[in-house]
Simulated scan of single mutants.
Amino acid sequence: MTSTLSALLYLGLYLSQTISTQKQILSKPIIWAKPDFMIPKGMRVLIFCQGTPEAVEYQLYFEGHLSAQQSPKQLGRRNIVMFHIPAMTPLTAGQYKCIYRSKELWSNPSDPLDLVVTEMYDTPTLSVHPGPEVTSGKNVTFYCQLGTATNKFFLLKEGRSGRPQHRYGNTQVEFPMGPVTTAHRGTYRCFGSYNNHAWSFPSEPVKLLVTEDAGDTSLAPTEHTSFSDLWDLDLLTTEAEFQQDLGLWDHTAQNLLRIGLAFLVLVALMCLLAEDWLWRKRAQEKANGASSQERRRRFRTRRRLDK
């Protein structure tokens, strides 16, 4: 019975450690900026960080170094803090991450947020060839040119959530595109830069119109979406994904708990069976020993009688 209790105690400690390990898994926070990830020089920017409802402290890191820390004003489902940059400069442009604390545990860092300062150099010019209006299936090329030599150019489509295209060059680069579909419709701008976080003034917008060919059935949005609206849409999507991650984590934790309890019951049963087997084995050995002693005693008695 003592060994069974020891086994149960050991398994209880193992299960508690498993549950404790589950609690140490904190979902990483989400991070975003407003009004945009591209901020004109001198304009203020707000950085938001959202953790779990139990988060009690946040830290903001800039290029790997602690930049600011803050506690949420109120706990709850929308546990969000805001960090304020009064004026965007090349010194505040770069990569940001945030983490949060729940009780004594710290989360993993958020995905990186790259903030870009714009309006740092001359204004480039953007053109498209063979023209701003083409039929689907054709190829087009955007040309971005800057009077002052630089080393990298970026091409962005307004309302597009993907990362901007980039090409290396001194004063002019080409952005080939195609075969185009109606999904390529939209307004494009280009920037020049000397690094990934300091860009020129934006070029004048160039609107690409792709007319449908007879065999083209692709669909594309026709409404213009600003970068600011895009961030709102991204925020709603990211919050939904964040809540979904929390739900998946809770489901996983419950499954681990059920598996741990089933394992505890199984091993406890095995311990009881082993205990019973050992008890029977010892009883049998004790009975065999007593029988052997009795036979020896009878043998010695018989020999004395024979003499």
Results as ranks from 00 to 15, higher is better:
8 L>R: 15
13 L>S: 13
15 L>A: 09
15 L>I: 03
18 T>E: 13
21 T>I: 00
25 I>L: 14
27 S>L: 15
30 I>D: 01
30 I>T: 06
32 W>M: 03
35 P>V: 03
44 R>A: 14
50 Q>A: 06
51 G>N: 08
51 G>I: 00
56 V>G: 12
58 Y>L: 05
58 Y>N: 08
60 L>W: 02
61 Y>S: 04
65 H>I: 12
78 R>C: 12
80 I>P: 14
84 H>G: 11
88 M>W: 04
95 Q>R: 11
102 S>F: 02
103 K>G: 09
104 E>G: 14
108 N>F: 15
116 V>M: 02
117 V>P: 07
118 T>C: 05
119 E>K: 11
121 Y>T: 00
122 D>Y: 01
122 D>E: 03
128 V>K: 09
130 P>Y: 08
132 P>E: 01
135 T>H: 15
139 N>F: 12
140 V>E: 03
144 C>R: 02
145 Q>R: 15
155 L>A: 01
156 L>G: 11
158 E>S: 14
171 T>S: 12
172 Q>V: 00
176 P>H: 08
178 G>W: 03
179 P>A: 08
182 T>W: 02
183 A>E: 07
185 R>P: 01
185 R>H: 02
189 R>W: 03
193 S>V: 06
195 N>M: 04
197 H>P: 10
198 A>N: 10
198 A>Y: 01
202 P>R: 08
202 P>L: 04
202 P>Y: 05
205 P>E: 03
207 K>E: 08
208 L>H: 05
213 D>P: 09
219 L>M: 12
221 P>Y: 03
226 S>Q: 01
228 S>M: 09
231 W>F: 11
235 L>N: 10
242 F>R: 04
248 L>K: 09
250 D>V: 11
250 D>M: 13
251 H>L: 15
251 H>Q: 14
253 A>G: 08
259 I>T: 07
263 F>S: 11
264 L>N: 12
266 L>C: 09
267 V>R: 11
268 A>K: 07
269 L>C: 10
279 W>L: 15
290 A>E: 07
292 S>W: 08
296 R>S: 07
299 F>S: 10
